[in-house]
Amino acid sequence: MTFPITPRNIVAALVVAGLLLLPLYSQLTGNIFILTLFTRIVIFALAASSLNLIMGYGGMMSFGHAAYLGIGGYAVGILAFEGIGSGFIQWPVALAVSALFALVIGALSLRTRGVYFIMITLAFAQMAYYIVSGMSRYGGDDGLTIYKRSNFGGLINLSNRVQFYYLCLGCLFGGLYLIWRIINSRFGLVVQGVRSNEQRMQAIGFHANRYRLVCFVIAGTICGLSGALLANNTDFVSPAVMYWTRSGDLMVMVILGGMGSLFGPVIGAIVYLVLEELLSQFTEYWAMIMGPLLLLIVLFARGGIMGLLGRLRLG
């Protein structure tokens, strides 16, 4: 594998280095806040990357992707609440339930295309939202506090800020590597082919929806992992993480960073969440600035920030 020196790759390399060194910076300057912020960013970057797999590579505009954040989070929260604190149980359950949910939702939604697909994935996610809101044993609307983070024995201590940050970062890099392998594999080429021209793919012998569905399940499972991380990060899980606006946030991160570019959603998550943080310090109407900014990106920078960088020439 070769990485030519292009503006995109330079930016990606700098971001990777920055993310790796961030705890050091935080330690040296005593700035704990930045570590907290970036832990959150890294978790959302993983969630956005999983959405990019179906949206960018698979052409499936899912508007319900935050559902998996909630499902992964609730799997951890509910098991913790019921006295099962081991991460070796919590996390596989979080992944398995997310995969199952994706399988069911995908099998039903993938009968439709275009706007209908957007609407039906949105509807299913909202349904999941109302279901967890109604689980009074687990806090209902108010959410569920997680008193102890997932326990991985002596392997890693999730309550240690730096260790937890590196765990999240490891999950992000692992997720990106997995996605990178997938998009260059036989399976990945089929999924991208179906995005490009479904009729053609059927005509040469592919059962398009079967590949779409598997892709949908993989993405949901990866996002379930983000959910488990997020719940540990906030020591809390509530229906709000799966509300449709959260799904919208994830879509914005993907589009902002660059749909169908491996590293785009990472950039998107960083820019989106840092901007949100900065703007909300100055004004409570930060959304009024964010909205038009996004519109500009969508209108003038097809391919998002990575797309813009791709058009830059060195020298």
């Binding site: 260059n184 036989r186 080429l189 995005r195 490009s196 021209n197 040469i204 012998g205």
Partner: peptide
């Protein structure tokens, strides 16, 4: 009716792939 985002050879190779075993292979570089 081709795959506009693919190169010429990728368009043909994926047709060959469709008739060469299954494509639920997620790891190797196709």
């Amino acid at each position: 009716s081709l795959l506009p985002d693919f190169s010429a050879i990728d368009n043909v190779a994926i047709a060959a792939q469709a008739h060469d075993g299954h494509s639920f292979r997620f790891w190797g570089n196709a």
